[in-house]
Design a protein around this nucleic acid. Structure first.
Ligand code: MN
Ligand code: MN
Ligand code: ZN
Ligand code: ZN
Lengths: 146, 146
DNA sequence: AGTATTATTGTAATTGATTCTCAATTACAT
DNA sequence: ATGTAATTGAGAATCAATTACAATAATACT
């Protein structure tokens, strides 16, 4: 009962649709799962370059929606003008606490979100697809520096 | 013990800083508080035009951060490529439940968020400044249409 | 294996929201 | 009234993200 690898998940997603398995997509996916933490398109592109890959940014922009669609990756909103991402396959669902001073990002579990979603579904007749929760504040260090 | 008007709040904010009270800013603010619901910069600009105002988009973009800074307005994230806004002065704090099919937006109170913020403050030593919570799903109508 | 079909790629151009520059205007203090 | 410095509108600049296009390459089908 071992978990499928992310590559397996992606290949199964590719198959059955009219999509094609390409080295570019698999390089990008592999890199994403080697990154520990959050990244943006530029960072991902640089890391791929560093490893000798020649994938273009356009291909990254085209691949990300696929990864999100099959539940391997999700967008993360830091409200700084562009999207960030993280791989989520095999990770517990969590939210982000970000320091407005230094940009540090902590992850925390969201107790009560399941209950909230159930409540919303019942109350408004919605079928809930997901949610995002971000919290901002000042870390201890940045509080002193004030 | 009547509540101050939004214009009063803004004028008090202006005073004391090196800012100036201008008709453009007050027109924009007035329009924002006449809008029931959420809006984006384009919509706001059009409504102002319709009423004969000549304020430029640049001025709107420059005024919004002021309104947010004094707690009259806040950004709303619908993840559709640009920011939306809403006036919050005199309104209960709430989050948004949005239908991925038709775009309908419902507002709901967030029980438990105060407790969560207190928990995060204690657990990580943060001084919490705020949070955003968005929930997505399919409304009853859009579920049938599937 | 060879061929046809069509998805995918990289490059460069384009889009669209937001920010910035700059000269002209205007609010406010003296 | 006058000086000052903030604010304005217009348009240029920026920058993340999307798109057009011609070349390439993955799959399906002989
Ligand atoms: Mn995370
Ligand atoms: Mn709202
Ligand atoms: Zn910090
Ligand atoms: Zn709907």
């Amino acid at each position: 009962m071992v978990m499928k690898s992310e590559i397996q998940v992606f290949r199964e997603y590719i198959r059955g649709r009219r999509l094609r398995r390409t080295p570019e997509r698999e390089q990008i996916l592999q890199e994403i799962f080697e990154i520990h933490g959050h990244f943006d398109v530029d960072e991902l592109h640089l890391k791929l370059r560093d490893k000798g890959s020649k994938v273009s940014k356009a291909s990254i922009y085209r691949a990300l929606p696929l990864f999100m669609d099959c539940g391997l990756v999700r967008e993360v909103d830091f409200s700084d003008g562009h999207w960030h991402y993280e791989h989520i396959y095999g990770h517990a669902r969590h939210s982000h606490l970000r320091c407005l001073g230094c940009g540090e990002v902590l992850e925390f579990e969201e107790p009560g979100m399941g209950r909230l979603e159930a409540h919303l579904a019942r109350e408004y007749g919605y079928r809930i697809k997901g949610h995002q929760l971000q919290v901002q504040g000042l870390c201890a260090t940045c509080q002193e520096a004030e």
